[in-house]
Amino acid sequence: MAEEIKADKVVDARGSFCPGPLMELIKAYKEAKAGDVISVYSTDNGTKTDAPAWIKKSGNELIKIIDRNGYVEIVMKKVR
């Protein structure tokens, strides 16, 4: 059984449209401390590409992308 990663902060951006989920993720990132795990839920298709691109460019760690029932969950770790 895969180990569940516990997020320090969950951003539920379901129902919000691009660029809402990414902006919510960035807001949570600004408030988090290094080492925190942040999870964002989104029903917007664009988040699946936008959020990983942002995580990569910002030098943080993309932990996983999970397709849930009707939404996607993106889990990242704040590195810097």
Binding site: C18, P19, L22, M23, G46, T49, D50, A53, W54, K57
Partner: peptide
């Protein structure tokens, strides 16, 4: 621009 393109709408 804040997104991975130069405007919100692709």
């Amino acid at each position: 621009f804040p997104l991975n393109r130069v405007f919100t709408m692709e």
